[in-house]
Every structure is written in structure tokens, then in C-alpha cells.
């Protein structure tokens, strides 16, 4: 039977694929980074949905820990990517 938390899992799948399409097709580097973050969020939604055990049961802590790690790794990758873009534009301006 389709319960409410499945909705989040399904939208996680959709958000991940929306994000992947934008990563592949967007021309702007900054928007590609945003798309990569959105894509990661879709993956996190799938993981958290799998961890959910119903309104009264405690959820599985391992996917939660994975997602926490994922959020921090995503922000550090984003920071590095933004610095790379900045350096790239500086180099292009110098040309």
C-alpha cells in the first residue's frame, strides 16, 4: 500500500533526475553547481525515505548519518568548485 513517506521517496527520484538533466545541459557553470546540489538532495531524500519506519518507530540511524556526512561533503565540494570558477573567470579576464 502506498503510504505518505513513499511520496517523499518518489519526489526524491524525480528531483535527482531533474538535477542530473540540469547538470548535463545547463550552460552556466554556477547553475551547474546548484544543479549538482539539487541532485544530491534527491539522493538524500531517497536515503531518508528508506530509513523511515513509520510514525511510531525510531528510524534507522545509519542512513541519517550518511546524509549528514553527505551534506558536509557537498558544501565543501561546492566551496571548492566556486573558487575554481572564480579562478577560471580571473584567468579568462586576463586573456
Amino acid at each position: 500500500m502506498l503510504t505518505a513517506h513513499w511520496l517523499y521517496g518518489l519526489s526524491g527520484c524525480l528531483i535527482m533526475t531533474f538535477g542530473l538533466r540540469a547538470v548535463l545541459l545547463n550552460d552556466s557553470l554556477l547553475q551547474r553547481i546548484i544543479a549538482l546540489n539539487v541532485m544530491g538532495t534527491g539522493v538524500f531524500m531517497i536515503l531518508i525515505t528508506i530509513a523511515y519506519r513509520g510514525p511510531d518507530a525510531a528510524p534507522d540511524p545509519i542512513p541519517h548519518a550518511l546524509v549528514l556526512t553527505g551534506i558536509v561533503v557537498a558544501v565543501s565540494a561546492t566551496a571548492l568548485a566556486l573558487t575554481l570558477i572564480r579562478r577560471l573567470t580571473e584567468e579568462q579576464d586576463n586573456d
Binding site: I48, P59, H64, V67, L68
Partner: peptide, 26 residues
């Protein structure tokens, strides 16, 4: 809503907050 308060806190502080600040500055 999915009973993941640890993740909710991290998302509010890092995912939306700091990523947003980094992107806005960029």
C-alpha cells in the same frame, strides 16, 4: 516530517544557510 531532526538541523544550517551564503557571494 520524516523523523530526521539531525538532518533537518544540518540542512537548515549548512544546506540552505551556508551553501546559500557561498552561492550568493559568488
Amino acid at each position: 516530517r520524516l523523523l530526521a531532526p539531525d538532518v533537518a538541523l544540518a540542512e537548515a544550517a549548512i544546506g540552505a544557510g551556508l551553501s546559500g551564503a557561498l552561492l550568493l557571494a559568488a
